[in-house]
Computed example of a mutant assay.
Amino acid sequence: MLSIGEFSEMCHLPPQTLRYYHSEGLLVPAGVDERTGYRSYLLEQVEQAMLITVLRGTGMSVRLVRRALDEPDAAPALLEQHSAEVERRRQAQDEAIRDARAFFRSWPKVRRRHVPEMTVASKPVPGTSAGRNQDEWEEAEAAVAATVQDVVKTVESCGAVVSGPPWRALAGETPEQSRQILAGEGPCWLVKVPVTADEDALAALPGDVEVQIFEARDELSLFIPGKSSIAKYCTALSRLIPHPLDDAYADLTRMRHLLHDDGVETTAAITPIPRTSLSH
């Protein structure tokens, strides 16, 4: 029998780690002195400790390691499952690092610009919510992305050319759309894709894609890099709302969320304040 100290040296595992593995039922000592509580191990248990160390070194949880040891035939599949999850986390961390670097290279600033008139293909995003929490927000983002891909594929198949970044906007262009949003029925979002096309190409678009003229306007714009989130959306609002304007205001009912490859650009139309209001 080996003392916990001897076993610790053989396995290169600290005694506190061995105690933790014991409490989790992962590596149970061969014997425990009832009076002193001292743990002792068998030489054969070094192999099990080695396997545990190998699997834990991959970042596997104790629960998953225990299952791999209890079900040796399932261990390879569990390892592949864990490897895929590690890769997903690594990609998410890489994306977060890129976003953080982008923030500190150039902190997002509100800009004013003029947007010319353009033709857009518009389509409602089916079954979306406004995004009351992060899960709903991500679900809506996925639905928006799928609708953008669908509209882009449709317009290109009809001979039209996508002429700028697509965007999403709240679906409140008609009384019925506004009613549906207030009733929580959806759709809550519309997708807009700028296009250049002749009349024949536009006429060939299916009925669920509406051709509209986006009127020229001045607007405030704030680009935030990386994946969209509720926090980033609220940050954009907090920057756009108080931005100082002469005899005008940022109209939040006429917002756009332009979907760039490296982030989301939130804009709000600049609406002049009527002179009668200024006089009062």
Rank of each mutant, 00 (worst) to 15 (best):
L55Q: 03
R101Q: 15
R98F: 02
H22A: 02
R101N: 13
V120T: 12
T36G: 12
F104I: 12
A102L: 10
R35S: 11
A100V: 10
R39K: 06
A121D: 01
R88M: 11
H22E: 15
Q81W: 08
F103N: 07
D94G: 08
E44I: 04
Q81M: 09
S40M: 08
G25P: 04
M50P: 03
T53K: 12
V62K: 03
I52W: 07
S61L: 04
Q91H: 10
M60G: 00
V28D: 08
Y20E: 06
P124N: 08
R63M: 04
R105F: 04
S106R: 14
A75S: 14
G57N: 12
R111G: 05
S40V: 00
A74S: 15
S83A: 14
R88C: 09
S122M: 12
S122E: 13
R19K: 08
H22M: 02
G31D: 15
F104T: 14
Y20R: 07
L26D: 03
F103S: 06
S122T: 08
A96W: 05
H114Q: 06
L69H: 01
G59T: 09
D99N: 07
A49G: 03
Q81Y: 07
A100L: 15
R89W: 10
E71H: 15
M60R: 01
K123D: 00
P29E: 12
A74H: 10
V54F: 10
A30V: 00
L78G: 07
F104E: 14
R39W: 06
V62F: 03
A102H: 02
P116D: 15
A121N: 02
D70W: 03
A102F: 04
V46S: 12
R67A: 05
D99E: 15
L26A: 02
P124S: 06
T53M: 03
Y20L: 14
V110P: 04
G127P: 01
G59K: 08
E47C: 01
L64M: 12
A75F: 09
V54C: 08
G57F: 12
V62L: 09
R63L: 04
A92F: 05
L51P: 02
V54S: 07
V86S: 12
E71L: 12
E47V: 07
V125I: 11
M60T: 02
M50E: 13
L79F: 02
S83K: 06
S122L: 11
V65I: 13
Y21S: 02
E80F: 05
I97H: 08
R101A: 15
E47H: 10
V125A: 14
